[in-house]
């Protein structure tokens, strides 16, 4: 059977141009939705700012940070936690994308996405890219506010060099959220995601305190923190801010991204995935 059986006057493309149109459409919708949900934007901005201006100010004298790479001088505590808060923005955004997927599945939006003739791996990846694009907007707004308090990379190039790091960490956390979304049955379970995914990942990482400090308290916890891919995400962003590449973190984040993405695509596979086992 050839394409001659295609409906007449259907002017579209399932070739490269079609893929581009489809990706653009998915990102565009996600951005539009985000701009229409002002509360979400404000929440995404206020959350890290609260951490930065209340938590960090309160702790700056308690938690001294010694000179550890990539820092070459003593840094203020709020400078230390900024990369962690950037990663937190992406963590929340990634989980919120997963929340949206569960919500979409309940309202049927996920289904309209999945009846697209493009391959499912492409649709899911496009959805992830859209989520990352939104997280970049959030991070940009956060860093803009932070720069008023002179929390900045050593040179303006740092804003450019964190971009690829942010894309990768955003994909990793978004893909993790997507895997979770296939497992979560209902929207109410998002509280569980907060308790069992977001908080442990955030606190058992180098986002708020350097790992040598954790090791002083508990070597076991320090090891858990090191194994936590979120730590790698934080460190990748931290080094990228200083125009450096932390190769170990890069490897862990890239590997985790690939693994989570593969799991997400498998979870949404029509024949083998999680959906097939479940009613409704």
């Amino acid at each position: 059977m050839t394409d001659a059986a295609a409906p007449p006057s259907l002017r579209g493309s399932l070739g490269v141009i079609g893929y581009a149109i489809c990706l653009k459409g998915i990102v565009w919708r996600e951005a539009l939705r985000f701009l229409h949900q002002r509360e979400r934007f404000v929440a995404a901005l206020v959350r890290p700012l609260v951490w930065l201006f209340i938590f960090a100010m309160g702790f700056r004298s308690v938690l001294g940070v010694s000179i550890i790479p990539p820092y070459e001088t003593y840094v203020l505590y709020e400078v230390y936690i900024t990369p962690g808060l950037v990663a937190m923005i992406q963590l929340f955004n990634g989980m919120q994308t997963s929340l949206a997927l569960v919500y979409d599945r309940e309202t049927g939006n996920m289904r309209t996405l999945l009846v697209s003739p493009f391959p499912r791996w492409f649709l899911l990846t496009s959805k992830l890219v859209a989520g990352v694009a939104v997280s970049l907007l959030q991070v940009a707004a956060f860093l803009a506010v932070a720069s008023f308090w002179e929390i900045e990379p050593p040179t303006a190039w740092g804003y450019l060099t964190i971009l690829p790091a942010l894309v990768l960490t955003g994909l990793m956390l978004g893909a993790l959220g997507m895997v979770l979304s296939s497992v979560i049955k209902q929207l109410e379970n998002f509280a569980g995601v907060m308790n069992f995914v977001i908080f442990p990942m955030f606190f058992a990482s180098s986002a708020l305190y350097p790992l040598w400090r954790v090791r002083e308290g508990s070597p076991v916890l320090a090891m858990i923190c090191e194994l936590n891919p979120f730590t790698s995400a934080v460190e990748l962003i931290r080094f990228a801010f200083y125009q450096q590449i932390d190769w170990t973190s890069l490897a862990v984040v890239a590997g985790s991204t690939a693994a989570f993405l593969a799991a997400a695509i498998l979870a949404y596979d029509p024949a083998r995935g999680m959906l097939v086992r479940r009613e409704g």
Binding site: I21, K24, G25, T112
Partner: peptide, 17 residues
Amino acid sequence: LSIAQNLAYHAALHGLF
């Protein structure tokens, strides 16, 4: 979103120009 935006999204999902 508006009707037009909803339809544009769907058209993109099908790769329509």
